[in-house]
Design a protein around this nucleic acid. Structure first.
Length: 646
RNA sequence: CGGGGCGUGGCGCAGCUUGGUAGCGCGGGUGCUUUGGGAGCACUAGGUCGCAGGUUCGAAUCCUGUCGCCCCGACCA
């Protein structure tokens, strides 16, 4: 390709829209253009990069026996209703773009393809003899992100490789999961990325085991925690660790563990309490009042206890709450702090009466009685079954007959969950459930409580590791470029995807799914490979492998030699670019550095003597070589570097 | 959704406080000179100052509304 024909438009100034280096560089170097928030055009240069990444992904996926396919992006709502995700994806997080066609049928633009593929599998896979299979596709996904940002990093339209495997048993799923794990490691290595594999939360996709592949970079949106020996790495959403030892409460239990009242006027935060009375935060029990909203209308108040010095991990909480109530009440739509604002919003929007004046915010103790949620005289929508009894229907049954959108109703008892750090305290300080008063020297037994214990605390950098307390966790930022899941039978059961096993019995398929953010990966590669002058593409995914530059466009000898070299390299199968523009040398050099072609072959002053200059973009090493030697060097260096595995 | 910021030639910005009919740098075009790290000179094209109201003799500038974009946050009161 000739630069004169490339529609290359580079910018001298940083664009105002971009914040992080990779985003600025991709725009400045002419790789992308923004059309709207989170919507980008992939210009010809970037398209070449994406094609190269895709080729690597294909090679590695095909090598594992996976089958490439292409699935619809326009997906009927009933598919998503059958899996139980329509409400969560449209109403709750609202991550799915959805629309009505001219007949009033609801459709979603695919943010992922579990539903589509499972419906196909249900149709096509009938016998254990057909298993296992792993189908993948590389295509555009749509997600209505709350806040798109950083260019291709979090776009509303992006390119993803997603794969879905189907198995007759869990062992087979594990095998494919392991194969995907190693294929992913090869893919990222071949793309020139430094990644770390971390334990991850399964999030909205669901399922059991899952692992994320993170490109380590300061601009990463995820916080990852790793042990010093590297044997443990997890997303902070998921990470576990040992909390620091609590400092025993001086004086221990009071009033046989019921605690003595302590006047604490205006002291509603852990900090204020500690400062006023000399407590260590680890001597306090922090009680959080939250409200969980469910698809089928349930509004469930939560009372969450943590040790005062610990932080809540919202993802762990959502998982715990969901596990307890989602089977009866549909998808968990969200959890919010139960404030006066929220209470008045509940009253005005959903007609639910909740009298927060009965609840002394800032002075809550773990023994806060359900009576505070008691129904006021006039109230609507009481559901006596919520939270306590409830009809126990299985997930499959629920999915087969989607829950009708029920009117919002408020549970009148708390779902109480306690983190071990709080549960293990022998004597603590907690709110007295009375304004301006706390209890000193209370205990769980003394308060006549049997806490339901769930890991809810956020692991922090510096915490000791569970697998080896002599090690501590360190934090790093990461960009998630890949995620693999063992889904199990969640979707196959919901969508009735069954096969006949060897014994002739019907069984639900075992599933796995495996994603790579292809367009995000391209930007992550820039984030990890750039310098003050521009991008430094790893050769395996660079849009071109070498750029031939004649220093002077006026010197016919140079121009001719550059032309010859360009032809020879192309004939030898090298992805060569020829900068044939009538520009000064400086302009061409700057552009070559900015767009980041790994090798630059300069035809300059020495052209008449058959001397050229070969410059490496990454290490900036320059070597003066005879023409033949330069060509030989490139033919020697480039082909082996292509697979990215040296 | 909450908070903050910004909308002025293709791009990056100034002008707004103190109203008087729009400017700088880059980029584009033409010509001459220059030619190994984003050249110089000259000429030139290109803007209903996001949009809609209002105040005023007069609005990019003041007021109101509206739309769009960017940043931070949206879990511990």
């Amino acid at each position: 390709m000739r630069v004169s024909c490339l529609m290359l438009v580079t910018l001298r100034d940083d664009p105002a829209e971009a914040e992080i280096p990779s985003h600025k560089l991709l725009i400045r170097a002419g790789y992308i253009r923004r059309l709207g928030p989170g919507i980008y055009a992939y210009l010809p240069l970037l398209w070449r990069v994406l094609q190269k990444i895709s080729a690597i992904v294909r090679q590695e996926m095909d090598a594992t026996g996976a089958l490439e396919t292409l699935l619809p992006q326009l997906q009927p709502a009933d598919l998503w209703q059958r899996s139980g995700r329509w409400a969560g994806y449209t109403a709750g997080e609202g991550i799915m773009f959805h629309l009505r066609d001219r007949h009033g049928r609801e459709l979603g633009l695919g943010p992922t393809h579990e539903e589509v593929i499972t419906a196909l599998a249900a149709d096509l896979l009938r016998s254990y003899r057909q298993l296992s299979v792993n189908l993948y596709q590389i295509q555009t996904k749509f997600r209505d992100e709350i806040r798109p940002r950083f260019g291709l990093m979090r776009g509303r339209e992006f390119i993803m490789k997603d794969a879905y495997s189907f198995h007759a048993n869990e062992g087979s799923l594990r095998k494919t999961y392991a194969a995907m794990d190693s294929a992913y490691r090869r893919i990222f290595r071949r793309c020139g990325l430094r990644t770390v594999a971390v334990e991850a939360d399964s999030g909205a996709i669901g399922g059991s085991a899952s692992q994320e592949f993170m490109v380590t970079a300061d601009a990463g949106e995820d916080l990852i925690l790793t042990s010093s020996d590297g044997s443990y790495a997890a997303n902070q959403e998921r990470a576990v660790s040992l909390a620091p030892e609590a400092i025993a409460l001086p004086g221990g239990l009071r009033a046989a563990g019921a605690g003595e009242l302590l006047a604490t006027p205006g002291q509603t935060t852990i900090e204020q309490l500690s400062a006023a009375h000399g407590f260590d935060p680890s001597q306090l029990v922090k009680v959080l009042l939250l409200l969980a909203r469910f698809e089928a209308g349930l509004r469930q108040p939560l009372l969450v206890c943590l040790r005062g010095d610990q932080q809540l991990n919202a993802v762990k909480l959502a998982n715990a709450v969901s596990a307890r109530l989602a089977p009866q009440h549909g998808v968990l739509l969200g959890i919010e702090p139960l404030s006066r604002e929220l209470a008045s919003e509940l009253a005005s929007k959903e007609g639910l009466q909740l009298d927060l004046d009965a609840i002394p915010l800032g002075y809550l103790g773990p023994d806060l009685e359900d009576a505070v949620l008691a129904q006021p005289k006039i109230s609507l929508g009481l559901d006596p079954s919520a939270a306590s009894s409830g009809t126990a229907t299985g997930g499959a049954a629920r999915a087969a007959a989607p829950l009708p959108a029920a009117a919002p109703h408020l549970a009148r008892s708390f779902l109480r969950l306690t983190d071990p750090t709080a549960a293990e305290l022998a004597a603590f300080v907690a709110g007295a459930n009375k304004l301006d008063q706390h209890r000193l020297g209370a205990s769980w037994k003394g308060l006549k409580l049997q806490p339901e214990i769930v890991d809810l605390r956020a692991a922090q950098p510096g915490d000791r590791c569970q697998h080896d307390p002599s090690q501590t966790l360190a934090a790093a930022r990461g960009i998630e470029v890949g995620h693999i899941f063992q889904l199990g039978r969640k979707y196959s059961e919901a969508m009735q995807a069954r096969f006949t096993n060897e014994a002739g019995a019907e069984e639900s398929l075992w599933m796995g799914c495996y994603g790579i953010g292809v367009s995000r990966l391209a930007q992550a590669a820039v984030e990890q490979n750039h310098d003050a002058d521009g991008i430094r593409w790893p050769l395996a995914i660079a849009p071109f492998e070498v750029i031939v530059v004649s220093a002077s466009a006026q010197d016919p000898i140079q121009v001719q030699l550059a032309e010859q070299l360009y032809q020879r390299l192309r004939d030898a199968g090298i992805d060569a670019l020829l900068d044939d523009r009538d520009e000064r040398a400086g302009v061409k050099f700057k552009d070559a550095d900015l767009i980041g072609i790994p090798w630059r072959l300069v035809v300059g002053r020495g052209a008449a003597q058959g001397q050229v200059e070969l410059v490496g973009r990454s290490d900036r090493q320059r070597r003066d070589l005879a023409v033949e030697a330069a060509v030989a060097a490139l033919l020697d260096l480039i082909p082996p570097a292509r697979c990215g595995l040296q």
